[in-house]
Simulated scan of single mutants.
Amino acid sequence: MAKAKVVASNLGAPPSLDWIPLERLTIDSRYQRALGNKNERHVRRIVAHFSWNRYQPIVVTESGDKFAVIDGQHRLAAAVLHPKIDSLPCYVVDAPTVADQAAIFIAANTDRIALGRIHQFWAAHAAGTEWAVRIHKLCEGAGVEISRTPRSNLPPLTTVATFTIQKLFPLGDNAIASALALLVESHGDTADVFRSATIAALARIAAEQDFDFAGMVKVLRDLDLTEQLARAKAKKATGGGKLEVALEEILRKRYARRNGAGRR
């Protein structure tokens, strides 16, 4: 990648890295958030799974004989609770006033690109995490590719619905695999089909004991799934609830109607 043409001219004072004892680290409540119940649960998760391999140095600045923590309050709270930690590696920046510190705090918590779910999935898969490996195996077995990036327009046989598939685990792998296979059989050459709501709706239908796979394929082949998803969105808008549930109701009616006609 070529050097950028537009760059910041004032880089400020270079920071330093240092190990600082916990008792010298302090929180300024004038710009830091108070730790509520949700934050405390997050802190305890950090303590339970703490590893230096995953630790990122906290950002601090000198404040008298202490160091004010600008970014990393949860990591500090976790370190205080952990019996084997008495100091932390810190990124020490030059921020002499509270206004300077608050500005860095805002930037550190807003000027960042959050790790999306699809990126979380691929990172977990690379790490060999069980849930990610399981999802990949299910999709690969159905001939469905998992996108490497989040996208709104999906090519045929492509999905980003990893989070939804993970939520469907209680239904069992057979139900999830059947949902994917239904879409492959009925709309394998259609773009933008392997959506979260559609996969979830079909997996719940496929989980039933007397489910007729071939019959459902016939139902789906007669449907424009984009149109059905739009109907489900309208249904959700007026009646509330989840999109996948609204779509499930629509597909169930079609499925029941066809099965009923087939038995006569």
Rank of each mutant, 00 (worst) to 15 (best):
D28C: 10
V43R: 03
G72T: 14
E62H: 13
I46V: 08
Y55I: 08
P21H: 04
L35V: 10
R54K: 13
D71T: 03
R54Y: 08
R54T: 14
V47S: 02
L35A: 15
Q56F: 12
F50L: 02
N39E: 15
S51C: 06
F50H: 14
H74A: 07
V59G: 03
V60F: 00
R33F: 07
F67Y: 15
R33T: 10
F67A: 04
Y31S: 03
W52T: 12
A34M: 11
P21T: 05
S29I: 14
P15N: 11
F50G: 05
W52V: 06
L22F: 04
I20S: 00
L17H: 11
Q56H: 14
I58F: 01
V59F: 01
L35K: 15
E62T: 13
Y55Q: 05
S16Q: 10
E23V: 11
P21S: 09
L25N: 13
S63H: 12
T61K: 05
T26V: 12
A34K: 09
E40P: 01
K38H: 12
A77N: 13
T26W: 00
A48G: 01
A48C: 03
D71A: 09
I58L: 09
V47D: 04
G72C: 10
A34F: 00
L17N: 13
R24E: 13
D18H: 10
V69C: 08
T26A: 01
I70S: 03
K66V: 02
V59H: 02
N39T: 07
H74R: 15
S51P: 02
T61C: 02
Q73L: 09
F50T: 06
H49P: 00
I58Q: 03
K66R: 15
G72K: 11
I58G: 01
